[in-house]
Design a protein around this nucleic acid. Structure first.
Lengths: 304, 304
DNA sequence: GCGTTGATGAAAATAAATTTCTGAAATGTG
DNA sequence: CACATTTCAGAAATTTATTTTCATCAACGC
């Protein structure tokens, strides 16, 4: 470990958190039956695994310590301790998936549950992010003469409002619409150099699909912020997929919003970076706000 | 370690992540000069510390290994390995605070930056959460005959709209207002059994302060979702404080939104649990939506 | 059927962490 | 100011943990 070349620079040390839980669940890299048994044993009680020694883990899985060491190496870790470290990191965000819904009741439990789920949602969104699609979407938005953002229902409404809120500050011409009828009219009236971005948590907003169809006929580019393999995704030119594991979200869409919100956040940042002059303008604006802040009149600082 | 009683149940094993970085920065628990030196050395390169052995850490700090062991114990860890584990967990969410803004540019960096900051914000919000105040706020909201939610600017507007979106589903009578003038009129017309909740990211929304003052005179309860030690907080009856470290948020309020959103989420859940019949109604509603979902018409599932 | 490859555990070797013990410094006390 | 007491810190020894080496076994191909 002392001579490991990447331990100083920290190629995989502090950041990024290669997702060990996923690798463990995934099995594809695991050849032998014993290794699968080991993976299952670790997944069955991750918090035990993060705290136990190699001997204890081996004993619980019914294998020998060397097997555990080899297993860790196969998973891409430098050593067993490295494995434990990475597991601890992954477990911090990923652990809850493995537990059944505890039907929380005390305020502390509710708070922890919501925060954890939100972090999980962000983690999963980030893991499944298609950066290439995101870049293409940002490119389209940055080059658009006019942007329309469509989405309805409590959640997608928020998202498209947020899009408008973020993008108009970057100098984009944008309007958001939460109303199907209005969206259709806007789509019909849109000029060829416009870009339409639509959000749908479920991917089954059929009005949005219809809208996208109409726009495709007219050669206007469309971006969907939605689940992949959904009607909305199929109807759009560029799909920024936000796929979260079904299970826990079926009863509560709320954690999904964090993922969508972050996707919008990333998109807005990429749009800002897509155009240097725009980016500069953005920074100037922020600085101006900062100065205003120092002068005491910070009522509007960063939009409150 | 084998007989450590809490290793099986995992009292501090998987969850909660006692924030070691904060404890390390805090210094108050550290008596001797050597321990402070050790803390400084670890903080100077956290990712080194998470990967190194006790000997390496001791050498770098210029102390002996036993001192490191004792140091870990003093910090509340069971052993040095336990310390490393906790450090790794804390570092995963807390590390970025210690690094200067890297001026991200590639899409991958932007995405990681935003996701990490959002997770940081959630983590910090959770850490500083005053559950007692939150419960009181939820109790007020659950008992209110009418709720007014005030907040302006892009961010707080979103928050109060979200509040309305969440609470009306629970059977609360609620209206959100993003307009100062309108808010004042609503406040003036509010009846004594109403409750007003206001959001302000900066805590310096003076119109909101004025509103709260007016309401206090009239004996109407007010709840603030804002920074503690701010004018808005001072003017409210119940303060749900969301305090995030300044540094990284001065240039971009966006990560703060995740914290506020989660606070609203928690609040809404507590309101739901505050009233059993309401909670039951909520669940029935969700079930009905689920059934509709199975029938194929899931267009409105959970509000999209 | 036999050699080869890869997987596995036992035992040995290595490395790591903790305890014990001893000396040094600081603080209080006569 | 000297002495006792406490606390702190490191050296060495002990314990514990991890990894390497090596021998065995099973599966697979030739």
């Amino acid at each position: 470990m002392t001579d490991k070349p990447d331990s100083a620079g920290g190629a995989n040390s502090g950041m990024g958190a290669p997702d060990l839980i996923a690798a463990l669940t995934d099995e594809s890299g695991l050849v032998s039956a014993l290794e699968r048994k080991l993976a299952a044993s670790i997944l069955a009680d991750v918090s035990f695994a993060t705290n136990a020694s190699i001997t204890e883990i081996a004993a619980r899985a019914g294998v020998s310590p060397p097997t555990v060491t080899r297993f860790c190496r196969r998973l891409g870790c430098a050593s067993f301790s490295d494995f434990k470290l990475q597991l601890a990191r992954s477990a911090y965000v990923g652990l809850r998936y493995l537990r059944p819904e505890p039907m929380t009741s005390t305020p502390a439990e509710v708070a922890e549950d919501i925060v954890t789920k939100a972090q999980n949602a962000l983690f999963e969104m980030h893991r499944g992010l298609d950066l290439e699609a995101l870049s293409r979407a940002a490119g389209l938005l940055a080059g658009a003469q006019m942007i329309y953002a469509f989405g309805s229902g409590g959640n997608s409404s928020m998202i498209v409002n947020e899009l408008q809120n973020r993008l108009f500050r970057l100098g984009c011409r944008i309007t958001a619409s939460n109303d199907h009828g209005m969206s259709l009219m806007l789509a019909a009236a849109a000029e060829p150099d416009a870009v339409v971005i639509g959000s749908s948590f479920t991917g089954r907003n059929l009005e949005l699909v219809r809208c996208f169809g109409l726009l495709r006929e007219r050669g206007i580019k469309t971006i969907a912020l939605t689940q992949s393999n959904s009607p909305v995704a199929a109807a759009a030119d560029v799909v920024v997929a936000v796929d979260l594991p079904e299970g826990q979200n079926i009863f509560r869409a709320s954690s999904t919003r964090y993922a969508f919100l972050a996707a919008v956040d990333i998109l807005a940042n990429l749009v800002a970076y897509a155009d240097r002059s725009r980016s500069a303008r953005l920074l100037r604006g922020i600085k101006a706000q900062l100065i205003r802040h120092r002068d005491g009149d910070d009522r509007q600082l960063l939009g409150d």
